[in-house]
Design a protein around this nucleic acid. Sequence first.
DNA 1: TGATTTTTGTTCCATTTGAAACTATATAAT
DNA 2: ATTATATAGTTTCAAATGGAACAAAAATCA
Lengths: 157, 157
Amino acid sequence: MEQKSSLRLQDFLPYRLSVLSNNVSSLLASLYTEKFGISIPEWRTVAVLGEEPGLTSTQIASRVAMDKVAVTRAVQSLIEKRFVRRSSSQADGRVSHLNLTKAGQRVYVEVVPMALAIEHKVWGTLAPAEKDYWDEMLSKMESRVSTLREELLECNK
Amino acid sequence: MEQKSSLRLQDFLPYRLSVLSNNVSSLLASLYTEKFGISIPEWRTVAVLGEEPGLTSTQIASRVAMDKVAVTRAVQSLIEKRFVRRSSSQADGRVSHLNLTKAGQRVYVEVVPMALAIEHKVWGTLAPAEKDYWDEMLSKMESRVSTLREELLECNK
DNA sequence: TGATTTTTGTTCCATTTGAAACTATATAAT
DNA sequence: ATTATATAGTTTCAAATGGAACAAAAATCA
């Protein structure tokens, strides 16, 4: 690929990626905001607690791409809505373990198939080999982006 | 691809896409926020005016994925910073045409190569055929997502 | 022409987000 | 033990964002 010298936003991959990602996210969000009144960070928290019950806030933050403030807020709101329960750890007084309530599990169990269905509708026609290719590409790009970010931080010191 | 029944967020394509996209965006943003003090919507406005001088706010909004409120704010801020100039249309009294000032053109001319360099570093190792494949996939997904969104709107009527 | 509806762009208000300061507990060092 | 440092999580405040109401000009239609 030779270097272009002009930038058509519509052809610029980061831009297209951003538009696609936002559209997919808001499509997914429509699944759970309407039915359960939860936001994107709240859904991510539920999703992660559905996979791994008993995580702490910091663990959630590290698994999902959210900072700890976002997690605090999501958890608070989910507790008010009775989707999540907190139990303080006796091992470490700063920490509390978080779990889905019955109602929270219901959210998880209802939303997951819908989310997967959307994923399937958007990417499902990919042949398995293509799917693997995608996974690989995404991983590669992820790692390149984080490398670039570090380089940038480096040279701004 | 057979339908999965559980959801590991880390493997969920919409989620991975979202993380990648956010990281790329913030990487790009670091190029222009530090040097010129402009935000993402402001940069998009500059980029689009660099390609097509004289656009109106609505035209900008339709080219970039921003609503008209976001465009209003971006344009106001860019005018304050002397990167954009507005000239009211004598043909249509509601409308004004927007152009980059000299300083705005300098932003455009300086940021574009850096943005393209990042695109190149992240996607540049793709063979031309792969690049085409990507473009095609992104287009396909875009259209599927918008179809799905319409279906969803449809059945909520 | 005069009344009605659309379109363009802005303003206002409520909600969301992000960064920094802060509290409380735990760990390390002397 | 006592002090210093690090970690977990929350609060606070300012800025960004989104939606609805709005004003002004244009287009439509009677």
